[in-house]
């Protein structure tokens, strides 16, 4: 019964949102705006459900004694931010923004920059011109890397122009092919979801 009701709800909301796109009537616009607003609100609740799940999981692992200190650090950070926001607010020059600027931003940037090393080591292992496609991949990456780097003695105007042409034409063509495929695939999947053919989101069999 709930499955049928959920499928009907999905169909109605899908149809309404699809049909309203073709209307400029103020009611249709208002409906679109309202449903998108509802969407954001429900999404916020799903995020909170996810965070609650993370807390419950961490507390369970804490009780079981698994990597206690790291779980405490995660939970501490999670509790600290809302606590600071409640006491001092989230405007500039508050402890909340201080933590964001001096803890979260540098940590995120450094973790992101770590990937430079792993990408470099992966390319050493993976970039072997064993076949024509692998050779083209290697050549394309090297041309872009050299044209965008400022290594003394490796700056050639023709290489920069060629790299720009490569990016704007053959690379763009493949990107367009992929984007058209994504577009058509998304439309098909959306139709399957609205019509109730695709039901994996309901869970179960």
């Amino acid at each position: 019964m709930t499955r049928k009701f959920a499928l009907m709800t999905c169909f109605i909301f899908g149809l309404v949102m699809f049909v309203q796109y073709f209307s400029n009537h103020p009611t249709a616009k208002l409906l679109n705006q309202s449903i998108l607003e509802y969407w954001q609100i429900i999404f916020a609740f799903t995020l909170i459900v996810g965070i609650a799940g993370f807390i419950m999981n961490s507390v369970r692992e804490l009780r079981e004694g698994e990597s206690k200190i790291y779980k405490l650090a995660s939970l501490g950070g999670l509790i600290l931010m809302p606590l600071l926001a409640m006491i001092w607010g989230i405007k500039a020059d508050t402890p909340f923004t201080w933590i964001f600027e001096n803890v979260q931003v540098p940590l995120q940037a450094t973790v992101f920059s770590l990937l430079a090393f792993f990408v470099a080591s992966a390319s050493f292992r993976g970039f072997r011109a064993r076949s024509i496609p692998a050779g083209i991949l290697l050549a394309s990456a090297i041309i872009i890397l050299i044209s965008r780097s400022s290594i003394p003695g490796f700056q050639f105007d023709f290489l920069t122009d060629f790299a720009n042409w490569l990016r704007s034409n053959p690379a763009m063509a493949a990107r367009r092919g992929i984007l058209i495929g994504i577009g058509l695939g998304s439309v098909t999947t959306s139709l399957r979801v609205i019509l109730g053919i695709e039901r994996t989101w309901l869970g179960g069999k």
């Binding site: 709930t2 499955r3 009701f5 959920a6 499928l7 709800t9 999905c10 169909f11 109605i12 909301f13 899908g14 149809l15 309404v16 949102m17 699809f18 796109y21 073709f22 449903i35 998108l36 509802y38 969407w39 429900i42 999404f43 609740f45 799903t46 994504i182 577009g183 058509l184 998304s186 439309v187 999947t189 959306s190 139709l191 979801v193 609205i194 989101w201 309901l202 869970g203």
Partner: peptide, 19 residues
Amino acid sequence: KIPIAVMIGSGAGVAIPVM
């Protein structure tokens, strides 16, 4: 499943013309 249906359905409905 009801709020999920609302999100999935409206998201799919918006996605078709936009895509």
